[in-house]
Amino acid sequence: MEKDSKKLPLFFLGDRLEFPPVEAANEDGLLAVGGDLSPERLLLAYKSGIFPWFNEDNLILWWSPNPRMVLFPNKIKISKSMRKVIRTEQFNLTQNTCFEKVLDNCAKVQRKGQDGTWITPKMKLAYLDLFEKGFAKSFEVWEGNNLVGGLYGIDLGHVFCGESMFSTVPNASKFAFIKLTQELEQEKYRLIDCQVHTKHLESLGAEQISREDFMNILQG
């Protein structure tokens, strides 16, 4: 999926708080363009199986890919090396103690095939607003007193929409993801939405399911 796909959809959002049906997305998963980043629109998007992803110099792009990359919490894969890292207690995990710092670090990550960051200043403000309202969460990984990894996402109560993660030392983001998954399994969450395929996520147990199956779980 290309973030700046030239295959634009027919749907250009205005001020009305609405989205077209996800089945209208093009083959890249691009569904709509425009609108705003208000908390109301963002929550409607996530609850509808849609997420924003765009460069700072682009219009807001809204996506709903098919297939969808997800992780069922009970299918997390923990390698022998990661089990050893967990046992050594090298890292400590906290929740929601420095959401903005996690955002800032995620925005700095250099990602293959991307120019710049999609966590633009406007996007950052939007997620901070959702955090203040209790819908966005962060998981922070500490090595001593140093923040060395973490992730954040949107919590829908039965589905956690993972947005981004970072690591400044080996295994820190994996540690955050594994701990998140274990907690969500205990709380009976249905799945973690990972959005699009990466080999890293696949190595941790994530898999691709059809958009239809994803929507049935999301709205079930």
Rank of each mutant, 00 (worst) to 15 (best):
R83P: 07
Y189S: 04
E140A: 04
P170Y: 09
L147Y: 06
L201G: 00
L30D: 00
D104E: 15
I76N: 08
V33L: 15
E163Q: 13
K188F: 07
P9N: 10
T94I: 06
E202Y: 14
G150A: 08
G144T: 05
I178P: 01
Q95C: 07
N26R: 06
Q95W: 15
M123L: 11
G205A: 11
L10S: 14
K137Q: 08
W63C: 05
A107V: 03
F99M: 10
P170E: 15
N66K: 09
S81H: 12
K174W: 03
D57H: 14
E143T: 02
L147S: 04
P73G: 05
F166T: 00
N171Y: 10
N92C: 07
T181H: 12
P121R: 06
F135T: 02
G49S: 14
S48N: 13
F11C: 08
S64M: 10
V169F: 11
D104T: 08
H158Y: 04
D28C: 10
L218D: 00
W142G: 01
W53G: 01
N146A: 12
L180P: 01
L204H: 01
T97D: 05
A126V: 02
K47R: 15
S5N: 13
E2Y: 13
E185T: 05
S81A: 14
L43C: 08
G116F: 09
S203T: 09
G29H: 03
L43S: 03
E212S: 13
E27W: 06
G14D: 11
P20V: 06
A126F: 01
V70T: 09
G134W: 06
I76R: 05
E132K: 15
F91D: 01
N216L: 13
I60Y: 09
E183A: 07
P39M: 07
N92Q: 14
A126Y: 00
E40N: 10
T88P: 00
L103I: 13
A24D: 14
M123F: 13
Q219L: 13
M69Q: 12
Q182Y: 04
M69N: 09
P73R: 02
M82K: 12
L42T: 00
L191H: 01
E132T: 07
G35R: 03
N146G: 03
L17I: 14
Q208V: 05
R16H: 10
L30W: 06
D129F: 01
W63Y: 11
Y127W: 10
T168E: 14
E40L: 08
N66G: 07
G49E: 05
L204A: 04
E183T: 08
Q182S: 07
R68E: 08
W118V: 00
E183H: 09
E140P: 08
K133A: 11
N74Q: 15
V109I: 14
A32E: 03
F177P: 00
A25D: 02
N58C: 11
V102L: 07
L184V: 03
E27F: 05
G35K: 01
L130A: 03
P20G: 10
I154C: 03
F175I: 04
L43R: 11
N92L: 11
D57T: 14
M1E: 07
P39D: 09
T120M: 10
M123V: 15
K133C: 05
E163L: 11
F166H: 05
V70E: 01
M1F: 12
F51K: 03
S48V: 08
Q219G: 07
E143C: 09
D36H: 04
